[in-house]
C-alpha cells in the first residue's frame, strides 16, 4: 500500500524565520508540463521591506564576525547542502524538467561554489587591500569593507539553485547581508536552500529569501533608502533599466544583467559588494 506523502508548505525566509507573506498571497508552482507542484508565497512590498529591516539589523554581527568565522559558516552551508543534495536534485527535476544528471551537476556545482567562496573570506582583504607606500611619515592601509545590505535577483527560468547561490555567496564573503528574490517560476529549491541556511549557523537576517515577482518587488528595493547594492542579474532588460534608474537616487552600487556569469564564481563579484576604506595614521617617536 502506498503511503500518502506529506507535502511541504513553501513560505518566505525573513530574519531567520519562515513566515507566510503578510499579504496572504500564494501562486501556483507547476512543472514544465503544467502539473501542480506546490503553492509558493507571493512576497509583497511589505515582506521585502521587512526583509531589509532584518538584513540591516544583521549587518553589525555578520560584518564584525571574524573572516575565519564567516568562512566556517559558509563552508557549513556547503556541508548542509551536500547532505540534502538528493532533495535538491528532485526539486530541480520536478520544477524545471531537467534530467537527473543535469540536476545533480547543478547541485554539486552549487556546493562546490559555496566551498570556493567560503575560502575567500579570509583571503580577499589580503589580495585586494594592503599598505600603500605614500610619500610621507604615515602608516597607510586600504581594506575592503562590506557595503551593507544587498538585494539580489536570482536568474529567472534557469540555474534555479546555482544562480541563487552565485548571487548570494559573493555578498556574504566580506560581511554583507542579503535579501534575495528567487527564480519566480521554480522557487522550491530556493526555499529549501533557505532551510539549509537556517541550519548552518548563519545568523538570522544575514540571508533572507523571498519568492514572488521580480517586476513587483525589485523596484521597491532599487529605491529603498536602506539598501546599498542591487544585483540585477536576474532582471530582464526593461526591469533592469527601471531599477538602475531608481537606484541612482540613492547612488546604490548596481550589478547589471550579464555583468557576471550566473553559474560560476568571480573575485570581481565579491568586489561588487565592497567599499575600500583607506586609513592614514601619523608615525613618530614622540
Amino acid at each position: 500500500m502506498s503511503r500518502l506523502p506529506v507535502a511541504k508548505t513553501y513560505k518566505l525566509f525573513i530574519g531567520g524565520a519562515f513566515p507566510r507573506s503578510e499579504s496572504g498571497r500564494v501562486y501556483d508552482v507547476t512543472s514544465p508540463s503544467g502539473e501542480f507542484i506546490a503553492n509558493a508565497s507571493k512576497a509583497s512590498r511589505k515582506d521585502a521591506r521587512d526583509a531589509v529591516v532584518a538584513a540591516r539589523a544583521a549587518v553589525a554581527k555578520w560584518s564584525s564576525a571574524t573572516a575565519y568565522n564567516r568562512g566556517q559558516v559558509m563552508y557549513r552551508i556547503a556541508e548542509m547542502l551536500e547532505g540534502r543534495s538528493a532533495q535538491f536534485v528532485d526539486e530541480i527535476q520536478k520544477s524545471t524538467g531537467a534530467s537527473a544528471k543535469d540536476a545533480t551537476t547543478e547541485v554539486n556545482a552549487a556546493i562546490d561554489l559555496l566551498v570556493w567562496y567560503a575560502g575567500w573570506t579570509d583571503k580577499y582583504a589580503q589580495v585586494v587591500g594592503g599598505a600603500n607606500p605614500v610619500a610621507g611619515p604615515f602608516f597607510n592601509l586600504s581594506v575592503p569593507e562590506p557595503s551593507g545590505v544587498a538585494f539580489v535577483i536570482a536568474p529567472q527560468g534557469n540555474a534555479t539553485l546555482i544562480g541563487l547561490v552565485a548571487a548570494i555567496a559573493p555578498a556574504l564573503v566580506t560581511g554583507n547581508t542579503v535579501v534575495a528574490l528567487s527564480d519566480e517560476s521554480s522557487p522550491c529549491a530556493a526555499m529549501s536552500f533557505a532551510e539549509v541556511i537556517a541550519t548552518s549557523d548563519v545568523p538570522g537576517g544575514v540571508v533572507n529569501i523571498l519568492t514572488g515577482s521580480p517586476a513587483e518587488i525589485a523596484p521597491w528595493m532599487a529605491s529603498h533608502q536602506d539598501v546599498n547594492t542591487v544585483d540585477l542579474g536576474g532582471a530582464d532588460a526593461e526591469l533592469a533599466l527601471a531599477c538602475e534608474r531608481d537606484a541612482a537616487e540613492t547612488l546604490k552600487r548596481v550589478i547589471r544583467p550579464g555583468q557576471f556569469s550566473s553559474t560560476t564564481g568571480s573575485v570581481d563579484r565579491i568586489g561588487a559588494f565592497v567599499e575600500t576604506k583607506t586609513v592614514w595614521h601619523t608615525k613618530s617617536l614622540a
Partner: peptide, 30 residues
Amino acid sequence: GVIWANTFNQFDPTSPFGGYKESGYGREGG
C-alpha cells in the same frame, strides 16, 4: 572611504580615495 588619524586632508597617488554611500563609488589613486 578615507580616514585620517591624527592628521587630515593628506593625499597621495598611491592611496585610494573615494566614498561610501552617497559620496559616490569607485576609487581614485593607486
